[in-house]
Computed example of a mutant assay.
Amino acid sequence: MIKIARSIGLTLLFAAGAATAQNAASHGTPKDAKVTPLMTQEMKDIPGKEVLMITVDYPPGAVDPVHRHDAHSYVYVLEGSIVMGVKGGTEVTLKAGDTFYEGPDDIHTVGRNASKTKPAKFVVMLVKNKGAEFFIPVK
């Protein structure tokens, strides 16, 4: 759990810096996503795999840096509206109740709050290798 907390902390630090720079350049005001870990559960019937569940709160205008997860990522929008897209795929706008999937080889090229005035929140369930980083920046 400490390793996951440290990973999440480092990931958030990087994401916050990248999102701040990107937002400052494009919107004039930095807005960072807030990632909250909910649980991690080893998948005992699938050796070496675990599930990590997180929530992501997007303030108005929040934008993610380009990244990947090296995991099967299942997104469920709780409130607001978000825009998601992976390299080679179609950009989609999702509202509360909508879902989105990213595979382990997908590069998440678009992730942002669709609104500049209202917050958005979603939950992500990641099926990944045990102990592996869940957020990998892509340049």
Rank of each mutant, 00 (worst) to 15 (best):
R68V: 04
T11L: 10
D64R: 07
P47F: 06
D57P: 05
I46R: 05
N113Y: 04
V75P: 01
A18D: 08
D98R: 08
T36F: 03
A25V: 13
R68F: 10
V35D: 01
P47E: 11
T90V: 15
N23W: 01
K118V: 01
G28M: 08
D64A: 15
M125C: 11
E50F: 07
A25W: 13
T11I: 11
I8E: 09
V66W: 07
K116S: 14
G17N: 07
T29D: 11
G89C: 07
E50T: 02
N113R: 03
Y76F: 13
G61A: 10
H67I: 09
A71E: 09
T117C: 04
D105N: 14
F100T: 05
R6P: 00
Y101L: 07
K118M: 01
T109W: 07
Y74H: 12
P65R: 02
P30Q: 11
D106E: 09
T117F: 04
R6M: 10
N129D: 15
T117V: 15
T40N: 01
T20Y: 05
S7I: 13
I4E: 08
D45K: 12
P59S: 01
L38R: 10
Q22E: 13
R6K: 14
D70L: 11
P30A: 12
K34I: 15
G88Y: 06
D105Q: 13
T20E: 07
V35Q: 11
G28E: 12
K118R: 09
I8Y: 01
H27V: 08
D105W: 08
K34A: 14
A15G: 09
G131S: 03
K87G: 02
V77K: 02
V123T: 03
F14Y: 15
